[in-house]
Every structure is written in C-alpha cells, then in structure tokens.
Design a protein around this nucleic acid. Structure first.
Lengths: 215, 215, 215, 215
DNA sequence: TATGAATGAGTTTTCATTCAT
DNA sequence: GATGAATGAAAACTCATTCAT
C-alpha cells in the first residue's frame, strides 16, 4: 500500500514489468491498481518472518487470498518472486537511507543518519532484505544467490558513498571500515531486544565505536 | 535441558575428544568406540556446507554409510542431532580460542588472539556452529532456536571474559563493544574471499578499528 | 461429427488454402482474413515437434502472440484445436500425394510417386498428422482418438485407390499389402537420419521390397 | 509373477540391482521375494495401457497398494522406473523371439517364427516396450529417449541376426529389408483388430510380402 | 476479439519418521 | 545396531479452462 503510489522511481526497475503503455482508460477501471505490488508486500512480510525455505507458496497465496496455483500467474517461480520481494526491500532500504541523509552535509553526520536509518529498517524486519543483507544462509540456489548478491551490492554502493566521504585515521582501510561497520550493525539482528535502547541509540553507539577524534 | 546445567558433561558426549587421557575402559564393554562422534563429525560438515534445511537425514546417513532409518538409533530426531552437532562446534570454537589465548597475558593481546582464532574457525566453516554464531536464519523451530541460543551464549561467555578485561575509553559500553566486535567479525562470513588478506590479517584489522590509544 | 459427413467442407475450413481461385469476397465483411489458419499453422508446428501432451495451450498462445485465455475464442478446447490441426495436416498430405500422382498413369509409377510424397511429408514433420499417421500413442482420449481415426481413414482412402490399382501376385491380400507398405514407410519416422539416403530414395527402396517382377 | 522365479538370466541386468549377496537367511524370511519385480510388472501393465505421460506415479502406487511417496523407495524417479519397465519388456521380447527360433534351422523359417513371436508379443501389449518398439512419441525427455533407444537397439540386434541369415535378391539392402519388415509388423499396433486374422497369420502374411521365390 | 486474473485438480518429488524383522 | 519397507504430509509447479471487463 504505502508503496503503490509514486514516490520511488526505483521500483520500476525492481518489479521488472516497467509497464510499456500506462493504462489509458485511467478513469474507468479502479480495479486492481497493483495486485503485483500488493503481493510483493504480503510475501515480503512472510519471507521476512519465516525465511525463504519455510515460507511456502501456499502460505503466500493463502495470505493473499488466492489459490497457490494462481500465484504463478504473477510470478514464474518462487525464486522469481523472492527476488522481486528482495529487490523491493532493497529499494526501501535505499530510499530510507537517502531520505535520512539528504538534509545533511557533514560527512560524519550523514553517516550517522544512515546508520540509524539502516538499523531501523533492519529491525523493522518488514522484508527479507533485512535478513539477507545481514545473514547469508546457505539455503539458496546458486542462481538465487547471485541475484541476491547483485541486489545487496546495489545497496552497499549507496553505503560506500557515505563511508568514503568520511575522514579516517591513517592505516585504516576504508573497505574494512565499511564492512566492519555494516557487520556490527547487522549483528544486531541477532541480539537486539526491543525494550532496551532504541535502534537509533544502538546505531549511534555502534558507529561511535568506529569513530576517532582527530585521525 | 540435559545439557544446560553442568557445562562440561555435554562436551564429553558431544565431541568425544575433550579428554586428554583415554578412559581406563578396563571393566566396561568395548562397544562402539565412538561411532557417535564420527557421526557428529560427518553431519557437522554437511550441515556446515548446506545448512540445516537443505541437509537431509538421507544425506547424513549416506555420508555415514548407513540407511536413513538407522540414524534414529543414534539420535532421536534431526533437531537432536543438529543440537549435538552444534554443541560440538561450539566446543571446538571455545577450545580454539582458549588455546590461542592461554600463553598470553596482556588483555589486548589476548583479545586479538581470540579474534584471530574466532575468525579462522568461522571461515573454516567446518561446522554449522560457524554459520549459526553469525547468521540467525529464521529457519529454526522455537525449540531448536532456544537450544541453539543456549549454546551460543556458552560461547559468548568465553568471549565476554576477554572483552571485559580490556581497558576502554569512557562512554563506551562494554556490551556494545563486544557485540559490535563480534558482529564485525562474523560479517566476514558474507564477504570474505580467500586469496585476499588472510583471516588472521582481517581479524587484526577489524579489531584495530575498535581500539583506542589511551582512553 | 461435424466433420465426418461431407468430407470437403472440413478441408476448406481447416487449411484455408485448398481453393485454387480465391473466394470472390465481394459482399462479405473483410473480417479477420485468416487468423484461424495462421493459428492452426503455428499450433501444427508445435504439436508436430513436441507431441500433444507436451504442447500446452500456453505454448501455442505464446507462439501466436496472444494470451492463453484468448485461445478459447478460436477453439473451444485443446482437443478441438488438435483435431483441426490434424485435419489440416491430413489435407496437406492428401494434396501432396495427389499432386505427385496427377501427371502419371502407370499404376506402379503412381504408387511410387505417392510413396515418395508420403515419406517426404512425413519426415518434414511439419504437422502432428505426420506423427499420428504413424504412431498411435495411447495418449489420447477416446473421443479424440475417434476423431483422429476418422481423419486417418480419410487419408488411407486416398492411398487405397493407388494400391488397389496395382497388379499383385495371387495370394497377396491387398489390405495387408497396403497396411504393410504404409507401416514400412511410417517406420522411417523412427529410424530415418538425414544425411544418409534422401527420403525419396528410401521410399523407392522400401516400395521395391514389396514389388514383384511378374506376379 | 511369471517372471519372478528364475528362467531368464537377462532380467538380472534389466532390473539393475544384481544382488551382490543373495539372502543368506533363505529359510527364515519368505516375505517380499521380489517386490521390485512385482512393481515392474504392475507398472508395465499401466504404462502399456495408458502411455508414459498419462500414467502417474499415483496410479502406479495405487495399483501396487502403497502410497505414492513410497514408490521412491524403490525407484529414484519416474524415468528410472520407466526405463526398468521398458528394459524388462525388451527382455521378454528377446526371450520370446529366441525361444521361438531355437528349435529351427532354416533361415526363412527362423525369421518367420521370429515375426510371429514379435507380433504376438506386440499385440499382447503387456508392456510399454510393445508400444515403444513401434511408436516414437516425442513425449520423452532426451535423457529418457536415449536410454530407450539403447534398449530398442538391444532388441534390434537380436532381430538383425535373423534377417542377416536370410538370402535376399540382388539389389536389396539388408538394412531396409530389416527396417521395412519391422515397420510393417509394428504398424499392426495401429490397425490390428482381434477377431479377424490371428497375429500369427498376420505376421506370416506380412513377411510373405517381403519374400521372393528364388533370388 | 482480447486481457488478466483466478480456479482446481493434477503432476513429480522430498523428507522426517516409524517399525517389524 | 542395522535393514528395508512404508507412511503421510508437504513441497513447487503445470495446465486446461472460465469469466468479468
């Protein structure tokens, strides 16, 4: 729902069906505006909660109120669906991070905002992207894994720009700085318990561990 | 349950190799010396490579040279087997870390040695413990997850002792320091590529990111 | 049923090309010129290559550039479509044979020309008629099988006229002569390999096996 | 049943499990002497009647009185089962032909006996081998087709020996003689109607069409 | 005529588990 | 301890067909 309107040009690419001819009869048919997007949304939640293997096409179709055979009208395979879901999740991560960063100019402030946005999105656990950005289960097919890696890289590229802008002490390799930071954040998926510090606080604290006074 | 109390009996059973001097074995029967340990070893490798869901009892029994029905003479269920395997993996992690740390006295040196040992064990990927210390797939049953968490905690307790000994700047919470560090290390599971830096080098560099001159 | 009576109207509809001089088309509407014939053509090729069961309505509609639901505007069912396709194939077989035979008068020469035409059409494999004239898969419904038999008979009638005209030695039953000859020819579907003798050569040689000097 | 005892050494190869160690405890366990052979027998009949695609694993398991999942205890896949069934059928064809031929010495008499045995086995339709020796549906996977071709060749080799022994007029290629003859016989699968001539009579008549007085 | 969505019954296959021998 | 047979539930996927728009 949230995402069915306009707002992110990214989704166009993510869903794959870039709609060559927009519905000309706009006024007459308010029927299914974007069943597909809705479906991705629902599947997202399930995959996010139960993981890839333990979420069956039956589960998804049931949640969507159709028979499982009918799912294949929309997606050719479970993998295809998962990739779409994942891509949508990455889109959202990127959007969140970019929105958080936009108004700021100081590199460290921008990075901090990004970490907060990242951790919040991660712990919201609305999409498997959350999980998969962090965890690397051996559960996937090679084919699937490759598609997922591509998506993950898409996100990391966004993150790289932020870590690259920051000033670091001599001898610190940017690559390890970035990967270490992301690792530290993503680890929270395993140990974070709501009730204690907020995601934002945790994110700030974790980033603090990596930050030096002067350099 | 059985294993959550004492802390050592578990290891005995699980790995079968933690005892320096072999049991007297005088009066008792010369039964199966350690089929069980062998089984755990084989299962370990499979679970480690393919993950829990994608490793079937058939696969394991085949690797062990028996029929899948026969596995149930050794372990009551797949979960039970997995927990044993996982516990054995944790044992090994602990053993590795403790061995690496033993000859040293300086806290930071000890921690560094531990990080190196940890990352090496992790990337060796010989056991699912590796994966599961790091990744938190939603693949498991609640029951299973609880058992696994207990094991993970067993390991983290060992790690805590080392991070607790280290001197940190004011304002750094030890908990986040520990979790951040472990997260950074475990993240390598996703991005480490043999051929570039060695696990040891990576571990040292990552730890370096968390280290301050004075305090 | 529809097609079993008259014998020619079927062909008209099926192939759409059996008419030497184009229909006057004066008064009538210039509707879809022959979408239907085009469809049959496309379906023909698919059924011919993959067989009845392994060719799905999806495949056909895709080859035709429409959605599978839309196929049902043209044909009420898969069986109906297949029968039409098959009938068109038989039409073509008949046309080929008759064209080959037309200029000749000597009975054996006419039969030989027919055999050549038959085998060439068969091995071109452009239509399931090819296959089905020869193979009798148990794949079909009773209903379908009956319709197909009727079509096959239509073809065999043409062939009968040619074998009946030929002079045979005493004691040779014409029925077995005809069926044996057709069997020998159709068998080539299984073993013919392009690159060796041409279909025409093979046909002549096979017919030769059935031919006696005097009688 | 018929085939579960001894009689054909061929079957050993056909079923593929040549039984390394014969059951030592012969006297004690008369339980399932050859479930596998029984299964092949049942499957044979079904495949023979309905064809490969239209016979489901469900059908087979039902006919055998077990659940469909249990079939996979005996055969790894439908294709594997079909190949076993087919091989068993070819075995029987070979056995029939060889038995019929054994007491005779005159080449033409031997060939005639073989044709009779062949056609009788074919029209008995007890196994898909019957069908597939004759029909070459495009229904099969490449993998399956190859396995089947190998089996068919095994049979044709037996037949070749018989056609090779016979004296033929000059100019008749033995290859086409053999293939033409088999084609003529196999064609009967499509048109034979019990009630008219017996298979033996038909076979003799068809062979007669290929036979010359002197040379 | 065509589309897009859905149906419902079917397919093969996988797998943890049980149990008599 | 091990075997071999079977269970039963679930999985992903296919496909002919229908129908409102």
């Amino acid at each position: 729902m949230k995402k069915s309107t306009a707002e992110s040009p990214v989704r166009e690419r993510a869903t794959g069906r870039s709609r060559a001819h927009p519905p000309p009869k706009a006024a007459s048919a308010p029927i299914a505006p974007d069943r597909r997007a809705e479906l991705i949304e629902k599947a997202s939640r399930l995959f996010g909660e139960r993981g890839y293997t333990k979420t069956s096409m039956r589960d998804i179709s049931a949640a969507f109120g159709i028979l499982h055979g009918s799912l294949y009208h929309h997606f050719g395979s479970k993998e295809e669906l998962f990739i779409a879901v994942y891509a949508a999740g990455v889109d959202r991560f990127i959007a969140d991070v970019e929105k958080a960063v936009a108004p700021l100019t100081d590199p460290w402030q921008r990075l901090e905002a990004a970490c907060v946005a990242h951790l919040e999105a991660l712990l919201r656990r609305e999409s498997p992207a959350a999980t998969v950005l962090a965890d690397w289960s051996s559960t996937y097919t090679d084919h699937l894994r490759m598609a997922l890696v591509a998506e993950r890289d898409r996100y990391e590229k966004v993150f790289s720009r932020l870590t690259d802008a920051v000033e670091l002490p001599d001898g610190v390799k940017r690559r390890y700085f970035r990967l270490g930071l992301l690792g530290a954040l993503n680890g929270a998926l395993m140990w974070y318990q709501s009730g204690r510090d907020s995601p934002a606080t945790v994110a700030r604290h974790l980033l603090g561990l990596f930050r030096r006074k002067a350099g």
